[in-house]
Nucleic acid binder design. Structure first.
Length: 515
RNA sequence: UCCUCGAUAGCUCAGCUGGUUAGAGCACAUGACUGUUAAUCAUGGGGUCCCUGGUUCGAGCCCAGGUCGGGGAGCCA
């Protein structure tokens, strides 16, 4: 074993390897995975900034070190010294030819193996799951999104101000809130910073809040969390049009930044960026009533109605199911024939298992399509959209859709009524494509003091709790608008995730408080 | 709260119409293999079939109740 002092070589991070090609460097991190053959160990080494392959050759490091490397359990921490070699086959483009290796801490048997695991198992091990490559990539994208959000607003002169988390009252009155004890009085965890945002906008003109939000809904869906992060800009002297322009610029900016700066992460996530690229085109903007006509199949989009689209979707799934069933039958027949070698049997069997899992998934999606057809047929004009209606609408366009001018009854009390169209509120929802649903909700705020008072009464909210809010109308009333963005839904859409629970380090949802 | 699906080895799952001693792959251990990208070969250890009760000569499988979980509805970002 060559004598190598740990101080001779520069400590670098995996992320920087491209700058050190041909040099000998030292890295510190963890053994994410390895395989060995005679005389060689291939280790997937990670140090938090990235992943790279480390090659340990018995002829270079000697028997003793080689044995240590060969027996090193998954997720043990170690430092390695070696030469940086370009290798196009590797995900970062570089690998390390190790010349020295030092174990920092040997790990106990690691529960997350390089094999499929169920979601529940992974969620129970969330504290460790965060280390794996996919989760790592998602958190990097989340970080870039957060940074882009700040860049966007700060560069436009918005001030970040925070709304309180303890509140005395439900702001919109509808959703279930978490109740806590605030020095003997009931207090609720904030479900929105919106009303406070309005007060802050009257002080600073352009502001945005960025903080956690809590909803005690017992929702068990892939779109809901009990605790999530929301960004809520509020702008004095903005009407609905300006609000929509801002939403569009904002989403375009954030998505573009991720596309530019997170290529590696999106590649790890195997994200098809076709729909993301579409943010460069103008967003679709339609009024609620027109959206309803499209959902109900009364008006076609690019020559096809919602029912045409749903029927296509259904046929596609049926075809997928058929081909999966056929493949299963073929492979089962092969195995039964008894002519296969053991390895081939294993391969076929695991392929069958995978296809069966796919069949379960297809069945679920077919059920969803049936539900969408049902809800499109029975949609009652004047109602809010359900998850299925949103999906149908966005699938018709394949790009972000802004729906505005909603029936007042389905929107919050502070939404401004459209003078030209009484009964309709100047609210807007931005629906993400690919079934990711509502990621932004906002609109112009009601400025008429009497209308506000009336609506607070209609919603049966306690007037006393809103006196401070009404003061904003009494002292220098101005037209203003704002919106709220659900960070996790945006992360889910950009990363193309099946479930929102992967978008936040430690998700809190119905039935999940640990880890 | 409602609808729907599920719970079998550390993990992912198979287990036919109720029938002898419950299986596979991965993981782990040992050995073989010099360039691998989750699944090369051989050998080995590993089980309260979620719980309670019932039907039956016999229950992983059927029935009832419960617990926990997935997906969806409602509600929403």
């Amino acid at each position: 074993m060559p004598e190598i002092s740990k101080f001779i070589y520069m400590n670098v991070y995996v992320r920087q390897l491209a700058n050190h090609e041909g040099e000998t460097v030292q890295l510190r991190g963890w053994n994410a995975q390895k395989r060995d053959s005679k005389g060689l160990v291939f280790m997937v080494f990670r140090d938090g900034t990235g992943f790279c392959q480390a090659v340990i050759d018995v002829q270079v490091v000697g028997e003793e070190v080689f044995e240590i490397a060969k027996r090193l359990p998954q997720e043990s921490s170690l430092s390695i010294t070696g030469k940086v070699v370009k290798d196009e086959r590797q995900i970062g483009g570089y690998e390390i030819h190790v010349t020295a290796l030092e174990v920092i801490a040997e790990a106990e048997p690691y529960p997350i193996t390089p094999k499929e695991h169920g979601v529940d198992f992974l969620m129970d091990h969330r504290h460790l799951w965060l280390r794996s490559r996919r989760q790592w990539a998602i958190m990097r994208v989340r970080n870039r999104i957060i940074f882009a959000i700040h860049e966007f607003f700060q560069s436009r002169g918005f001030i970040q101000m925070d709304a309180p988390i303890f509140t005395g009252n439900a702001c919109e009155g509808t959703t279930t809130l978490f109740e806590t004890d605030f020095y003997g009085e009931p207090a609720y965890l904030s479900q929105s910073g919106q009303l406070y945002g309005e007060a802050m906008a009257m002080a600073h003109g352009l502001i945005y809040t960025f903080g956690p939000t809590f909803r005690a809904e017992k929702s068990k869906t892939r779109r809901h969390l009990s605790e999530f992060w929301m960004i809520e800009p509020e702008m004095a002297f903005y009407d609905l049009q300006m609000d929509m322009d801002l939403i569009e610029d904002f989403i375009r900016y954030v998505v573009t930044k991720v596309l530019e700066d997170c290529k590696n992460e999106l590649q790890i996530l195997e994200r098809d960026t076709t729909y993301l690229e579409k943010v460069r085109e103008p967003f679709v903007r339609i009024k609620y009533e027109d959206a309803v006509r499209i959902i109900k199949g009364e008006v076609p989009v690019s020559g096809r109605t919602s029912f045409d689209m749903l029927e296509e979707e259904k046929q596609k799934l049926l075809a997928e199911r058929e081909s999966a069933e056929k493949e299963i039958a073929e492979r089962e027949a092969k195995i039964k024939s008894g002519t296969l070698k053991k390895g081939e049997v294993n391969f076929n069997q695991s392929r069958i298992d995978k296809l069966k899992a796919q069949l379960t998934d297809i069945a679920e999606r077919l059920q969803a399509v049936e539900q969408w057809i049902h809800s499109a047929r029975n949609f009652v004009r004047g109602n809010d959209f359900g998850g299925g209606d949103e999906t149908v609408l966005t699938k018709m366009f394949g790009q972000p859709v802004m729906v505005y001018n909603w029936p007042q009854a389905v929107k919050a009390f502070y939404m401004k009524e459209d003078e030209q169209e009484p009964g309709y509120a100047k609210g807007v929802d931005l629906l993400a494509p690919e079934g990711y649903g509502e990621i932004v909700g906002g609109g112009e705020r009601e400025t008429d003091l009497e209308k506000l008072k009336r609506k607070i009464q209609e919603h049966q909210l306690p007037m006393s709790a809103f006196e401070w809010y009404l003061d904003l109308r009494r002292f220098g009333n101005v037209p203003h608008s704002g919106f709220g963005l659900g960070l996790e839904r945006l992360v889910a859409w950009i990363c193309g995730l099946q479930h929102i629970r992967e978008t936040i380090p430690f998700p809190r949802s119905y039935g999940r408080l640990l880890p």
